[in-house]
Design a protein around this nucleic acid. Structure first.
Lengths: 150, 150
DNA sequence: CTGAAATTGAAAATCATTTTCAATTATACT
DNA sequence: AGTATAATTGAAAATGATTTTCAATTTCAG
């Protein structure tokens, strides 16, 4: 985690941004957290513990954390920005359960390869991609009892 | 297009929803449109032509259109809901240009197969999935001149 | 035709996100 | 260490898409 903090500081300096107590606390809170976090999640976490840090500051710092490459946005289809750790984490895709909302991180090198090929076939220069599979996890698959409704 | 309209009407009846002029006009406008449309896009289109249909009605009807399986939501990462035709359209993924915003629909059966396998390997029951590759299209690849900025 | 139930649309509410701005703080430079 | 300056903070307001409310209107089964 020290490594990430140093990287963050270095990036701040590089862009003439100041190393403030708030920014460091927010980064640490983010790094300590395991799950995918929305801005609101993180704001509450920080607030719960001790510090008085404004929502706007958390919001703005999360933007910076993204830009430094320490986090990336993930999208669970609910229109809420969530961040997950990026630094030191390999790329992965998601299996997202439509019932319980849990997600699983997965990776398949063959798919990655084919994605590259697919893009190249279309003269497209891929930078990043996102693959989410929605469905039912093992537990929920058993207990599905959907009431079809409109 | 007649087929889609009949299907829509049938679905409405099935769920005790009424077949109104507004709903039909909105569906037709949607079906005639080629591109991916946001609620706002569609509202403007309809309004431009003639009809006086409220935004709320467009919004609500789009939800119904989704539920009937005639449209599905696509996500270009900008937090705006856009719908694309679903009925009679095969599943596909997207190549989305980070510069000009254009997108390309692509499909690769090998990837589809591997996605199924991947899910099964994790005892996950896949229902649908979403794969978007972000990068630069042919035209934009040439003229990239990004100014690195924070 | 008629009544019950659904729909409409204008306006307001919601909710995440983003900006504003005056007060505060970090940092480079004496 | 002191100071100037430029960035940051945080409360509050603004934004913008989405969603709901509710009284008036429309649909449609009987």
């Amino acid at each position: 985690m020290q490594k990430e903090i140093e990287l963050f500081k270095a990036q701040l300096r590089k862009y003439n941004l100041k190393v403030t107590q708030q920014r460091l606390k927010i980064l640490e809170a983010f790094l300590k957290a395991e799950r995918h976090l929305s801005c609101d999640d993180l704001y509450r976490m920080i607030r719960r513990h001790n510090s008085e840090i404004g929502y706007a500051t958390v919001y703005r710092t999360l933007k910076i954390i993204q830009k430094t490459g320490l986090a990336r946005e993930v999208d669970f289809g609910d229109k809420i920005s969530r961040l997950e750790h990026e630094y030191g984490h390999k790329h992965h895709d998601h299996l997202i359960c439509l019932k319980c909302g849990r997600f699983f991180e997965v990776f398949d090198p063959d798919i990655e390869l084919l994605q590259e090929k697919l893009a190249r076939k279309h003269k497209f220069n891929p930078i990043r991609h996102k693959m989410d599979i929605f469905g039912y996890c093992r537990k929920c698959s058993q207990s599905i009892n959907q009431t079809q409704r409109m």
